[in-house]
């Protein structure tokens, strides 16, 4: 998003008013971002490296990491496929109800995850619509690993879609039409024309989706049952440790998720550099 301005950027020297603006803006935003970030690592490392590594290698925490990776590992390919398909349908065609469809696709990221979790239980819980019937068939989809994976996938389903759609919309349909008229098939057009056009947005969307699914909290809290060493994800583990007597443990686990978030930002910055250098 480092947009190239039509106006050359102006230097600050000799312009006290501009300097004040920059100090105010960069100061406020910078602090708002840097303070929580710093706090996570400060509290994580307050008792030293040895304690830090001890917290991270605790059996329950490692298990939580595995579970979160599993949820993210399932959510990611599903959301990528879904996001690309949905963006293609919405961007390359016009049909009645398109706006509503976009809103529905984006809904899971726009309402409280608690609502998603509760709604999920209304279907798959034992007091829910299908829960008792599924249970009779021997299928359990509440308060276990499966339910965690499914709600994580639902909540993060719009991530890739959201990043890819604006680009697909902006690029219109001419290139695809040309490709088809020249004799390319549907898949060929998608792989050769559409995908290369949106690949960087896709990369960022995938990263964002990964970070979000690792960090999902509200919906997972509702459907997990928080069994230690079984259905506790990383965020639930943070919640649990935060309310225990050792605060540094919660922040140690939080620092893992924070590092992943920072890597996501690095990827994004890198992607944008590639993008602006390839377009100029």
């Amino acid at each position: 998003m480092s947009a190239v301005s039509r106006l050359p950027r102006v230097p600050l020297r000799g312009h006290p008013r501009r300097l004040a603006l920059v100090l105010a803006g960069a100061g406020a935003t910078g602090l708002l971002i840097a303070l929580p970030l710093g706090a996570v690592f400060y509290y994580a490392l307050r008792d030293g490296w040895r304690a830090y590594l001890g917290h991270l290698s605790a059996a329950d925490t490692l298990h939580a990491l595995g579970l979160s990776l599993l949820a993210a590992g399932v959510a990611l390919p599903v959301n990528t496929a879904f996001g690309l398909a949905a963006a293609w349908a919405v961007a390359k065609f016009t049909f009645r109800g398109r706006r509503l469809l976009i809103s529905l696709i984006e809904l899971p990221l726009s309402i409280s995850p608690i609502i998603i979790g509760v709604a999920y239980l209304f279907v798959f819980g034992m007091q829910g619509l299908l829960g008792p019937w599924l249970d009779a068939c021997g299928v359990r989809l509440a308060f276990n690993v499966a339910s965690i994976v499914i709600v994580t996938t639902i909540v993060t389903s719009p991530c890739v879609f959201r990043e890819v759609l604006p680009l697909m919309l902006a690029q219109g349909v001419h290139e695809e039409q040309t490709a088809v008229i020249l004799g390319a098939g549907g898949w060929q057009t998608f792989w050769r024309v559409t995908l290369p056009n949106v690949k960087w947005a896709l990369v960022y969307g995938v990263c964002l989706s990964f970070a979000r699914s690792l960090g999902e909290f509200g919906s997972v809290a509702v459907v997990s049952g928080s069994v230690r060493g079984e259905t506790n994800t990383l965020t639930l583990q943070i919640d649990l440790l935060y309310h225990d007597r050792v605060q540094t443990a919660a922040f140690a686990v939080a620092s893992v998720l924070t590092s992943i978030a920072l890597v996501t930002l690095l990827v994004k910055t890198w992607v944008e550099r590639r993008e602006s250098s390839s377009s100029s």
């Binding site: 798959f124 034992m126 007091q127 829960g131 509440a142 308060f143 049952g225 928080s226 230690r228």
Partner: peptide
């Protein structure tokens, strides 16, 4: 033995809804 902890009423509801 596995443990799950939470508000007592929330735990009861979880069992009711499928926590094994």
């Amino acid at each position: 033995i596995k443990q799950s902890h939470g508000g007592s009423s929330r735990q009861a509801r979880s069992v009711l809804e499928g926590l094994k």
